[in-house]
Design a protein around this nucleic acid. Structure first.
Length: 485
DNA sequence: ATGTCC
């Protein structure tokens, strides 16, 4: 029998697993979905979300996003808030790729100008932004520079003239997680990060050239505030994280937490849920190390953007400023953060774990740039390279229901190994070209793993997010060029 | 996701 039967449908877009289902559950689980997505939801998501609900110090409920799938310990698409005094911090609730995230860059170019140069553009971007596992980047850092990146995030970028000062206004947390302690970072992690800035990585990481179609703009005023204002406009989306650095930080703390849990009396059902009290030396050190990785990821995306601006500038023979290459927004998909939320009528600070989930703050939130305040936070969600992506906006109901969170993408339905068996990379590449999408990847096998067929329907995910009140669609973006790991 | 096993 499917574990899905344990969940009760309580509204069109919400399924609840009550604490009565399993003795060890501390809070209920709410799964945001729709009939179609729920019918094919992986049983592993149900099991893992119940496991998460057994952690100590949880506040209100565990939330599961419409794009959820099975992950390490926590499901990808899991959102959990922890009480600062009683709660724990868990690397499995953040993900190995700390501050994996998304950014969107505007241009004032249109498809008429870009299409004839598309292949050249993608080929040049492929050279300027290294892709693939273990690739080294265009900007090796000295020890002092690495310290600045970890500690200061986007401020380091601006001080070193590798980005524009105003970019900072359009980033989650203004591009810097406070409390980073570079002195806690191992030599090994430092070594892996030091020469990877400006690289994309592999898997579902990408840099994509996209086009706006007038019929895909759902809120003209909000789209305009987000820099999207005309039919056939070209934008650029980047999806990547903290590379080997974040992976090393996460692995080291996971191993450490397994050793120290007995000392704190933490019992877990799955070793992948390894955790430490937020208020413990180990928990505090993990947060301070995670902040270093989050800051490095912000910088990584900024360097990729800087090099993307240079490529566009060279090809279209105009300054990036004149091409209108402003940052619309930069959001985190894998992170834990201290945030203040109104929960059951009470305003309190909690530690939010968002793993494969995007922050989606409501209009007028103090963390938003002035021009975004009337509309809510831009939520950037990536689809497969064949189908398109969305910009959504945060809503008031997201704040009250899910600690200001929204889905982050379309979510896999097919394993990477299964996709590789069913799909031939070369054929896929050729078929995409026929549809007007020029894609260049580090490997054809890697390409096959990312086929649209292997992902949930993003339109469905957006509908479920909207129906569940997590965010509302502003514009859909269609791919025309893509570089992948 | 990841120098896909020190």
């Amino acid at each position: 029998m499917s574990l899905r039967n344990q969940a009760n449908k309580i509204s069109d877009n919400v399924w609840e697993i009550p604490t009565s289902v399993r003795k060890d559950m501390n809070v209920p689980v709410h799964i945001y979905s729709n009939d179609n997505l729920f019918a094919s939801l992986d049983d592993g998501v149900i099991k893992q979300s119940m496991n998460v609900s057994s952690l100590p110090g949880l506040v209100q409920k565990v939330n599961v996003m419409p794009d959820a799938h099975w992950g390490y310990g926590f499901p990808i698409g899991g959102v959990a808030a922890m009480d600062i005094e009683e709660g724990v911090i868990s690397p499995g609730g953040i993900g190995f790729d700390i501050n994996c995230g998304m950014r969107l860059i505007q241009t004032n170019l249109t498809i008429e100008v870009v299409q004839p140069r598309l292949k050249e553009l993608v080929n040049e971007l492929f050279k300027a932004v290294p892709t693939g596992v273990g690739r080294k980047g265009p900007l090796p850092l000295t020890h002092t520079q690495m310290h600045g990146v970890m500690k200061d995030g986007i401020d380091w970028v601006i001080e070193n003239d590798l980005g524009w000062a105003e970019d900072k206004k359009f980033m989650e947390e203004q591009g810097k997680i406070e409390g980073a302690k570079p002195e806690l970072i191992s030599q090994k992690a430092r070594g892996r990060g030091q020469n990877q800035l400006g690289t994309l990585g592999s898997g579902n990481h990408f840099l994509e050239i996209q086009v706006v179609k007038e019929g895909n703009i759902y809120d003209k005023e909000a789209a305009n505030a987000f820099g999207i204002n005309k039919n056939n406009q070209i934008v650029i989306m980047v999806h990547c994280g903290s590379r080997g650095f974040g992976h090393q930080v996460a692995s080291e703390h996971l191993n450490l937490f397994l050793d120290i849990m007995p000392k704190y009396g933490i019992k877990i059902l799955d070793k992948e849920l390894a955790a430490a009290p937020i208020k413990s030396r180990e928990g505090e050190n993990y947060f301070a190390s995670m902040a270093c990785a989050a800051n490095l990821a912000f910088v990584n995306r900024a360097i990729i953007m800087e090099n993307t601006r240079k490529v566009f500038s060279r090809i279209f023979k105009q300054d990036p400023e004149d091409l209108g290459m402003n940052l619309t927004y930069d959001v985190c998909h894998n992170i834990a953060k201290f945030e203040t939320h109104k929960i059951d009528g009470e305003t309190r600070e909690v530690l939010i774990h968002r793993k494969g989930a995007t922050r989606s703050f409501a209009p007028n939130h103090s963390d938003l740039a002035e021009k975004y305040k009337p509309h809510g936070q831009p939520v950037i969600i990536g689809g497969s390279m064949e189908t398109g992506s969305y910009i959504l906006a945060g809503t008031e109901s997201s704040m009250t229901q899910a600690f200001g969170s929204s889905p982050h993408g379309s979510g896999r339905t097919m394993s990477r190994s299964k996709a590789k068996k069913q799909i031939d990379g070369k054929t896929l590449q050729q078929n995409m070209l026929k549809k007007g999408i020029y894609v260049k990847g580090a490997s054809l096998r890697g390409l096959a793993e990312e086929a649209g067929l292997a992902y949930k329907d993003l339109d469905d995910v957006v509908k479920a997010a909207q129906g569940g009140g997590l965010s509302r669609p502003i514009v859909k973006l269609l791919p025309i060029g893509n570089i992948k790991g």
